[in-house]
Design a protein around this nucleic acid. Structure first.
Length: 561
DNA sequence: GCCGTTTTCGGCCCGACTGTTTTCAGTCG
């Protein structure tokens, strides 16, 4: 089986981690880590790239390109095997423990023979760690706590949970505050909450202690707490220098490093307080992020693009892409009513559409199929279509008569072609047999795309964040099939799905595949999830022309014809 | 190990906070 980008990136990351434990040159370690990240979100499959192409990837030079080729050919490389032989592989998970870094791991390994989590826990419980030079009882305690936290395995949050926590924090903070971090960047999952505030530190600390589970650490310039079992970092800033602070705390880390390198080339130092002239030592402060970008000679980079995936170069040359804006969305392309498993009547959905300022909403109740209760058969679908026409006579937001058909295990759809043909638009989705192997699943989905009545592939990987990984679908092949058949791929905006994810959206966009944003709403509050889908589209570098939702209802119907 | 509108060698982002220290290493973001 061919080695994919994900796997190659994982192996490069493993080399980086093992080098770290071995106490290698930090810059060499960073080189491997950066190369791994770049490979992880590459649009093209590595296997299609020549040696020259590989070296053109930022952060990949001769040495790493050679190792990538070795990995593609054999599934591993000599350097990795050498490191694995010299370092217990059980040490790598220790690096993920809070407060445990490479120096700690190395010391525990070489001096106490710790070779994994279990050995570490045993060493801590038998109080052998506090005897090491530079360690104490507190450190030993912290290690046991970190192990317990890791076993709880909270993982990353979905956006809805993260927004709830951020709202609770900003409401409690006695002053103006701004959400930063991955939540602001629009990522599909969120690790922790980052907030910048101009509120006074002492009062903020008191207020946060009332709502937080615990205070992790606290100083003049920041306070970190856990709330709802999650970490939140709050940084204090002067109103006149929010720009640099917001930029810093929004990240990503890789993006920040690139900006700081650019500042360095201009004989300046960039930190969270502003830009310092290396010669005079003068600090320039900025009330807005735009000011910092301008001083660095760049266009302002929208938060969703700040991942070091080419946006820095684009901003330096003034070539950032135009991005989709929420105000350009004319309708929602995936909504369920009480006709299947939703709770709203068609009238209520039309009213929600008006409230959202939409021109149309595509009604996509489930078709009768396996795994779905109350699915519609051809007759009920026809009956629903009549009621939709009736609602449309009075509503200003037009309801389009669609359906969400199941893609059956053999690739056929759960409705006959005649019933599909009668619809305004058809979404087809996988709702069963998620464990098909990659090739079977891919052929199954492509068969659905090749049905001329299918307009949109719903939640392409069928993942449920925190509950179910995506199917083994080969998304590259699906994107090629979508390009060939003119089928749209859905950006499912439900915070529990966020499917497709950003790197695949960008890959699809680059193949001129159209994307369709749908909230998959089953009840009123879920219509507002559109913003998550828009953020994902922006993270995939999509402009208004790349998504169906910016087109008029007539244009959608015309496209189907 | 990567990289170059000062460089093919000599750099590599920058600062906050904690714990174990007696001036700082380690971790984190």
């Amino acid at each position: 089986m061919a080695t994919g980008n994900r796997e190659a990136a994982r192996l490069l990351g493993e080399i980086g981690a093992l080098l770290e434990i071995q106490g290698e040159n930090p810059f060499k370690i960073r080189a491997y880590t950066r190369a791994a990240e770049q490979i992880d979100h590459l649009a093209e499959p590595l296997s299609s790239l020549s040696a020259e192409d590989l070296e053109a990837i930022p952060g990949v030079g001769k040495a790493i390109a050679g190792k990538i080729q070795e990995i593609l050919k054999t599934g591993t490389c000599a350097e990795l095997e050498r490191l694995r032989a010299a370092t217990p592989p059980g040490l790598i998970p220790l690096l993920a423990l809070n407060g445990v870094g490479p120096k700690t791991v190395r010391k525990l390994w070489t001096e106490l023979g710790v070779d994994g989590i279990e050995a570490l826990e045993a060493a801590a419980r038998s109080r052998r760690i506090r005897a090491l030079k530079g360690f104490g009882a507190k450190k030993e305690d912290d290690i046991l706590k970190a192990i317990a936290e890791a076993k709880d395995g909270a993982g990353r949050m979905n956006r809805a949970e993260a927004e709830r926590l951020a709202a609770a924090l900003t409401a409690a903070i006695p002053g103006d505050s701004w959400v930063a971090g991955s939540l602001r960047r629009g990522r599909s999952t969120i690790g922790d909450i980052d907030i910048v505030t101009t509120a006074p530190p002492r009062e903020t600390s008191l207020a946060l202690r009332r709502i937080a589970d615990a205070v992790i650490d606290e100083g003049e310039r920041k306070i970190s707490v856990t709330i709802g079992g999650r970490r939140a970092d709050i940084r204090f800033a002067d109103p006149g220098s929010i720009g640099a602070m917001l930029l810093y705390l929004t990240g990503s880390k890789a993006f920040n490093i690139r900006l700081r390198e650019i500042a360095g080339r201009k004989e300046m130092r960039l930190n969270e307080y502003g830009l310092t002239d290396r010669g005079s030592g003068n600090l320039l402060t900025f009330p807005t992020e735009e000011g910092v970008f301008s001083a660095l000679g760049m266009s302002p980079v929208p938060p969703e693009l700040r991942e070091d995936r080419g946006e820095v170069e684009a901003a330096l040359s003034g070539a950032l892409p135009p991005l989709l804006d929420e105000t350009e969305i004319k309708g929602d392309l995936h909504v369920h009513s009480e006709w299947s498993d939703g709770v709203l009547s068609l009238e209520e959905i039309a009213a929600e559409g008006e409230r959202m300022g939409y021109d149309y909403i595509l009604i996509t109740d489930h078709a009768a199929g396996i795994g779905i209760t109350h699915g519609l058969d051809a007759q009920r679908l026809e009956k629903q279509r009549q009621e939709i026409r009736a609602v449309n006579r009075t509503a200003s937001c037009t309801l389009l008569a669609g359906v969400e058909a199941d893609i059956l295990p053999d690739g056929r759809l759960s409705l006959p072609d005649a019933a599909l043909e009668a619809c305004d638009l058809v979404v087809a989705s996988v709702h069963s047999a998620f464990r098909h192997d990659g090739d079977t699943m891919t052929r199954r989905v492509i068969a659905a795309l090749e049905n001329e009545h299918v307009d949109i592939l719903g939640h392409p990987t069928a993942r449920l964040i925190g509950h179910r990984p995506g199917t083994a679908l080969d998304i590259g092949r699906v994107i090629e099939a979508a390009a060939a058949t003119g089928t749209a791929l859905e950006i499912n905006a439900s915070p529990t799905r966020m499917d497709l994810d950003d790197i695949y959206i960008r890959q699809a966009k680059e193949r001129d595949v159209i994307l369709a944003i749908g909230t998959d709403a089953h009840r009123k509050p879920e219509f507002a999830h559109m913003r998550y889908g828009v953020a994902l589209a922006r993270r995939g570098w999509c402009g208004p022309a790349d998504v169906l939702n910016t087109r008029t209802a007539d244009a959608l119907l015309e496209r189907r014809r």
